[in-house]
Design a protein around this nucleic acid. Structure first.
Lengths: 341, 341
DNA sequence: CTGAAAGCGCTAACAA
DNA sequence: TTGTTAGCGCTTTCAG
């Protein structure tokens, strides 16, 4: 009967090539891998067969045989958040340069999804994972089998036995505040601590903010540490508007991320305050929106490219067998001044 | 010698479980797959062995055996562009709901990278691909083996033999212009045609813009179709500033994307024009920045969730064997009014 | 309801 | 320089 054979569309195997070229599989494999010790006649003959059949190696089979997938997972909370989208791009490019591809996983701030990230590695889906945790805690990370190639990003967890790369948040916050003070600002607000925020980032940034103020001999005013009910722009707007209405005055705002900086721009505008004449605004993360907003946002800028490169570098060492203690790397940051300061 | 055995960290195989439980591999497999006809004693015994050993199936091996990868590729130009980042998120979520995972590929507007997308499918890396082309042309798409599960997004290519989903750009542009006219605007500019832009999008949107104007009996003024040298915000700012300086007057701007709308906001502000009092601004894509900018951008909003769902649906049918002609689906759009109109 | 064995397509010793 | 062959770990008929 005219049934299609098991050979469905495009299924040409290495063996088919070998048969057509009248050589062994090994020889075909040698040609495919550009192994140098192949006579050029052989190579020509085999290549002709490959072209004729339109052969493409089956990556899944290769993976099973070699035990390497050539892929790494990048696990981030949400891939449409500016900062994570940009990191994904950089890590993707970095990985590509080293012959790896990435599969991006969104954990959507879900603990179960974050656990699954680790599992993927165990299931042989990827050779390693770069993971920016949001919910999972230090304890759980510590429980991981140390041999698993894994590099952590961000400061949600502070593991001792796992590789970890981040910027120095506290010193970055200090630098930001100092820059603000150099332009004469004295009453600097922090936007904002978020109710229920369990991550370290806000904490570290707030710390740096306080350190810089104290070092300059400025007394801390607790009313300048604004409180927000959530991470959305409206939450940010409400936090700052509430402060203004409550009569709190300030001449600068250090924001925990660029989104809150946009919130500040909006709330300040509504209150009739000019930026930067009346109030300076300094964002954080230096995402694309910082360049696109009007006025363009000044922002604390982690070196994202370095973050990507260092994270990938550490991971590659692990994938190549390094099995030592967890390494912690700090990557540079800068304060980028645009129109809001 | 105390060499590590071939069994490296975490390599517990199905067979190991079978041996420990004292059953055959098939039985273990049945338990793993929750096959119903397994006596509960068996199930219990096997499950205990699985837990004891911490067994996790090797996905690569499973793939080789089944021929399905459970992954689809999403190929987009750049994953840190707002629109694409949001589409990636939606498609990722949609795929997840159906038991698929996505691997995101950035083509970076490179023809070679776009070709590679197709190749991946052929190499068995993924079961199908959702592809938003930027550079590859209709001819090349037509050349693809039709059996390859593939769904196209966007309007860069207009294939006849391939599934394709998009919004009706022309009618969306018309709707946008009509909305502007309803609020009394008559001199509506289009920002902008881009020199060297080979995609269809701008063309279709411009067409709708012109149709709406003509339908309202407004004569087309070619000076209102602004020209930009590139896609960046600065290019957009220059285009609109140049027009203003050249004495071109307008009371509204329809933008080809949200970034150009942000450019309009900036250029208009620099020229001392108020939005929306003097000039209305309508963006396109309704990305997050539209909500975040001040004033918040009105924007033509493609139903991204529907785009994702329809694209995935078509792809799933193909992956399940549908091999008919290319289907073209139009997904709804809306005009979201915020503060700039 | 459970077991045995033949692949899936490729790689990598080991031979020749 | 090229060929043989035994896996990689799982699925899946086909028996039992």
């Amino acid at each position: 009967m005219a049934m299609t054979t098991g050979r469905s569309a495009g299924r040409v195997r290495l063996e088919d090539v070998a048969v057509l070229a009248g050589v062994s599989m090994k020889t075909v494999s040698n040609v495919v891998h550009n192994y140098e010790h192949v006579s050029s006649t052989m190579r020509g003959r085999v290549q002709a067969a490959i072209d004729e059949l339109g052969y493409r190696p089956n990556l899944t089979a290769r993976r099973l045989a070699t035990g390497k997938t050539g892929m790494i997972a990048l696990a981030i909370p949400e891939m449409d958040q500016f900062y994570f989208a940009e990191m994904a791009r950089h890590i993707g490019e970095e990985a590509g340069r080293h012959g790896y591809r990435i599969i991006v996983e969104q954990t959507l701030n879900d603990v179960e999804a974050e656990r699954a990230v680790i599992r993927d590695r165990e299931e042989g889906l990827v050779d390693g994972v770069i993971f920016h945790p949001a919910r999972i805690d230090t304890l759980e990370i510590a429980r991981l089998r140390p041999g698993t190639p894994l590099v952590l990003l961000g400061e949600a967890a502070r593991p001792v036995n796992t590789d970890h790369v981040m910027i120095d948040n506290t010193s970055a916050a200090r630098d930001g505040v100092e820059m603000l003070m150099r332009s004469g600002r004295r009453r600097i607000a922090f936007l904002a601590t978020v109710r229920g925020d369990i991550t370290e980032s806000t904490h570290l940034r707030l710390l740096g903010y306080q350190e810089a103020l104290l070092a300059a001999g400025i007394e801390l005013d607790p009313r300048l540490v604004l409180q927000s009910d959530g991470f959305s722009i409206d939450d940010g707007v409400r936090a700052i508007s509430a402060a203004i209405e409550a009569g709190v005055t300030f001449d600068a705002v250090l924001c925990r991320d660029d989104l809150f900086a946009l919130a500040a721009l909006r709330a300040l505008g509504q209150a009739g305050l000019r930026v930067p004449e009346d109030v300076s605004v300094l964002g954080w993360d230096d995402t694309a929106v910082a360049r696109y907003s009007t006025p363009a946002l000044s922002s604390v800028s982690p070196d994202k490219r370095a973050l990507a490169a260092v994270a990938f570098g550490l991971l590659e060492e692990r994938m190549q067998g390094y099995d030592g203690v967890g390494r912690h790397q700090i990557v540079p940051h800068a304060i980028i001044e645009r129109a809001t300061t």
